[in-house]
Design a binder for these strands. Structure first.
Ligand SMILES: [Mn+2]
Ligand SMILES: [Mn+2]
Ligand SMILES: [Mn+2]
Ligand SMILES: [Mn+2]
Lengths: 219, 219
DNA sequence: TAATTTTGTTAGCCTATTCTAACTTTTTAG
DNA sequence: CTAAAAAGTTAGAATAGGCTAACAAAATTA
């Protein structure tokens, strides 16, 4: 059984591996977890001893098959929890991450399979991220960043890349949530700011920074 | 903020203090937590430094006012969780204790107040134990042990003293649950075994050991 | 290629929580 | 009122996770 701390390292490696196919550096993992490099190195040796990470001095870190699966199963619990908190407990999508960060470590298969059942076996979490299945398999749909769309495109918000309280509260303030349809009115060439319209919002201006963090489905 | 381990010590002291008005011995606390006496001693010194326990060498242990309140608030979270798991997630009353033992340590006031709200501010948990209020105040109703009742008494099951999986599964097997009304048919003088009737069970024999762990309301 | 900078590792130390062995105080028996 | 037993404490060590300082390797720069 992995400890809470070990699980958090596995998750971090899993996330960072998405952008770094050839492995994750100690530096990057250290920054991500806000844990000093020497501590990370020693934990990597420990996880290597448990066959969860392939570790070789000075080489990029890679999760093993086993480590990948265990990481995905923690992420599964995290995302199921977030979905449960939003759907069944009516907490805001900006509140649930921090709670899920803790509940994901609860040791109780029945608890999570009951959540799954009550939710009707959801495929995505409240932020649009896919929930890995019981075998740790996860498939990302091919979404586009809003920042990459063109004028007059009509799109549906499918997922948010950043799940920080601040970003989600920003979106709440503009009534932007998953499933919302919007049309791109104009794009400012100078700074890539996009003006969109949706529902009662006939002209909402979104910065490039924001648009890069919104994944959409095109029609 | 108290650690998970500290919270478990506080809870244990709180429970053991109920029967031991004059304080809890290191021995008893050690046995209860299955942690060796020297470890308990050092934790008591630590909790004393935090003003949660009154500790004096060789004297019985007592929670301070502050310690009592913090313990009660952890118990509140434990019992709210158990109630939530039974009422909203449809888990069995024999399954919820182990999960609540973990969830009680989650740091998130909103999570627990939402639970409380969704449950309609319950006063008791699924085992009939009172849920402390937000100030840590808890009142036990004056129930009787089934073992202390007389022939022909009609009683309602109000609480179970033992909340182990085994005991509750034993009760499940006999369709005994909170709120059940039963009538005492006879009491065997030799071993205090009690024969009761209820619903479709016209003659169920319960050992003294079992009857001592069932709290009832008399009619 | 040689010097620098960046990244990664080692060594040594810290806190939290636990343990065993040895010693001390209290309690209980006789 | 002693002497043995029980309960409690002290000392020393272990494990999990973290940190800093110093050193080493790899990657960059010049
Ligand atoms: Mn999250
Ligand atoms: Mn976590
Ligand atoms: Mn319980
Ligand atoms: Mn607990």
């Amino acid at each position: 059984m992995n400890s809470q701390v070990e699980e958090n390292y596995l998750k971090a490696l899993f996330y960072l591996s998405i952008d770094n196919e050839d492995g994750v550096s100690v530096k990057v993992l250290s920054k991500h977890l806000d844990i000093k490099m020497p501590t990370v190195t020693s934990m990597m040796k420990k996880l290597a001893a448990k066959h969860l990470v392939n570790y070789e001095s000075y080489k990029p870190l890679k999760l093993t098959e086993k480590g990948t699966k265990e990481a995905a199963l923690v992420i599964r619990k995290h995302r199921l929890t977030e979905m449960y908190l939003v759907e069944k407990m009516h907490l805001g999508w900006e509140q649930v991450h921090d709670i899920a960060e803790q509940i994901e470590h609860i040791k109780s298969p029945e608890f999570f399979s009951k959540m799954d059942e009550l939710l009707g076996y959801p495929k995505i979490d409240p932020h649009g991220s896919p929930i890995p299945d019981k075998n740790g398999k996860m498939v990302w749909k091919a979404y586009n960043k809003l920042s990459e769309c063109k004028v007059n495109d009509t799109v549906k918000i499918a997922a948010v890349i950043n799940t920080s309280d601040e970003f989600l509260t920003f979106l709440n303030g503009r009534d932007i949530s998953l499933g919302l349809e919007m049309t791109i009115q104009s794009i400012e060439q100078f700074d890539n700011t996009i003006v969109v319209s949706y529902n009662k919002h006939s002209s909402e201006t979104l910065s490039h920074r924001v648009c890069e963090r919104l994944l959409v489905e095109k029609y």
